[in-house]
Amino acid sequence: MSAVTPEIQRISGMRRFKDKGVQALVYLAFAIAVVPLVSVLWLVISNGLARFDMEFLTHSMRNIGARDAGGGAYHAIIGTLEQVALASLISVPIGLLTAVYLVEYGTNGRLKRSISFFVDIMTGVPSVVAGLFILAFWILILGMPFSGWAGAMALSILMLPTVVRSAEEMLMLVPNDLREASYALGVSKWRTIVKVVLPTAFTGIVTGVMLAIARVAGETAPLLLTVFFTDSINEDPFNGPQMGLPLYVFDQAARPNDTAIDRAWAGALTLIVIIMLLNLAARLITYWRSPARKR
């Protein structure tokens, strides 16, 4: 039996070639992925800046005629902020508690599997279906008026699965060592979850919630069916039609004159800025909470 003596070899030309080739492919794929992102941003910023001014941010469309310049999206900004805040208020606690149940309490039982299954199905619900459900149930059957609250409920249906899934992932990442360390100190299970598990997963959970918010803040279809729309400022989300930024963009972009088109672009830019600010706030919160800062 002749043993092959291993020898130290030079990198073959073929391997070098493959390496470079794959590297080029990866960079190319990245560039292609970035093109739409950058061009969308570029378009929205360059077109939106024309009307992105104080008047736009502080005025509604009340008494602005079809051909008039001026007007703004204040009513839509208020609407979007309130609707998204209410939607988060509904879906974050429910989603977080569901995730805690799935990770900490459901030990592979039938309930856990069926919850997981339905969360997966909810992920696939088209946004218009969520809107139709609230329209049919809340507005047509229960006879409630169009309102920001109805919109928030539709949005929360869309947020819920994202919150559950991301929080579940983050809770599963918490090492079991920490739970055991806490149990071994004579700490009960629920205090372990509240004081050790959730704080450890906090950063990830905040990121997940932000992604969910960003996802629903741009939804148009469910709002169209539940919030209806208005040109005036309505600060009460529980009473009467409201506006939302996506609705505003949809409405203005459909009008035939340039002043409206400009407002639509500015509305889109406002929406992007709001999401960016929210993300920034979340980053700041997680930065302040992170142990690395104290080191």
Partner: peptide, 9 residues
């Protein structure tokens, strides 16, 4: 425990 496991937060 075997591996040191201080609470990271």
């Amino acid at each position: 425990f075997q591996r040191p496991n201080p609470f990271p937060t």
